[in-house]
Nucleic acid binder design. Structure first.
Lengths: 213, 213
DNA sequence: TAGATTGTTAATCGATTAACAATC
DNA sequence: TAGATTGTTAATCGATTAACAATC
């Protein structure tokens, strides 16, 4: 890619939401949309929308607006959805199993190829058509199957050592549901989903709005 | 509470992480910590830490730093963790079941009291010691049991109508795992957990770092 | 062409960082 | 008291919004 200006976190956070609205519009048969109309729909501003899209090169046309189909696929491409991603799940507890069974990821090109657990009692059990494998097979599986993303659904105490094993095995990205910060080397991506933190956010809002009454 | 300056979203997002680090320090028997030492630990800045804490009134002491125990409980209080929160889960699929079974929420005062599903085949099944209830019982259950938070783990198509029912029933906050934006009246809090968006974030990073190589 | 709407520059706003006086 | 470290104000940085010339 060309020497793009650096894209801020805030912009990247908005991309999946753009994609969702554009997908809905496309499904409704809408062919084009102006930044203004999209801003009304998404409760954002036309200015921000144009700024955001222009960071990636400008997909619109003066006097016309944006072609929904084209914009949708461009944003999908920016988000890396044009490529297949190969995942494993580490931790076959309730959450690991729930994620394995969520079919929508597959539709977006995120393919689950294996699920692992340290508990021998789970070994051999089948989750979403995958046999649960023991941790001993982890490194070999990652290298042999060209896995790029590992999903971590294990207790926080195990998270750091397991992440180190994964990084050494050649994983490129970690989707981390464990309640811990993972110290990974530069170039390895970590996306945290801290559910407890998210829930605290709600209770903060409840507490502070109650105080205002 | 007094006329506090308005707290930005960015600050609130950092509070649960402060709480986590302070809890760990407390468990390690650390009694006090300076903003500088905490910043080194958390890879943030001392300045930001002091700014953040001072928004809520300043919990430190010059020349000493912050008392870990005291700071921990103050932040817990700010986050509303000193109160019990009463929750129901709507949608008893894999994700709903996984959340119901996650014991750590309960430790923080988030108590699950009921789980609902529109699928009659699930009715009567037991999830985390709760009988799955039919949607017909939803409104009555919310009012009778003084529920404040509803967890939405249902398909996106059902999310908006169900959220309206919940709001009418008197719910105060929605923890939304459905892939839709919920149009709720002012005063009702929505915290979105859009897992697909989070995963796209990872694939964006993978795609853009691959482009740089 | 005239009207619409983008792409882009400039102005504003807010959040982070730096600095330092207050004070334990 | 002297040293340490906060609380808080000021400076900087970055992100959002406004404005408008370019152009379809």
């Amino acid at each position: 890619m060309q020497d793009e200006p650096k894209i801020s976190q805030a912009v990247i956070d908005r991309l999946p939401r753009y994609l969702r609205y554009l997908g809905d519009l496309r499904d409704q048969g809408v062919e084009r949309i102006s930044s203004r109309d999209l801003s009304l729909l998404m409760h954002s501003t036309a200015s921000q929308i144009r700024q955001d899209f222009n960071l990636f090169g400008g997909f619109g046309q003066q006097g016309y607006g944006y072609n929904v189909d084209h914009l949708y696929s461009e944003i999908g491409r920016i988000l890396g959805l044009d490529k297949e991603h190969r995942l494993i799940i580490v931790g076959a507890g309730h959450l690991g199993q729930a994620l394995a069974n969520y079919a929508n990821f597959e539709k977006r090109g995120f393919v689950f190829l294996g699920i692992f657990d340290r508990d021998p009692a789970l070994s051999g059990k089948t989750v979403a058509d995958m046999k649960v494998r023991p941790m001993e097979e982890l490194v070999g599986f990652v290298t042999e199957n060209d896995i790029d993303i590992a999903v971590l659904t294990i207790p926080k105490t195990a998270a750091v050592p397991v992440s180190e094993i994964l990084v050494n095995a050649g994983i490129k990205a970690i989707w981390n549901f464990a309640h811990a910060d993972l110290p990974v080397p530069p170039g390895i991506m970590v996306e945290n989903v801290h559910l407890t933190d998210s829930l605290m956010h709600l209770s903060y809002s409840l507490a502070s709005s109650a105080g205002k009454e």
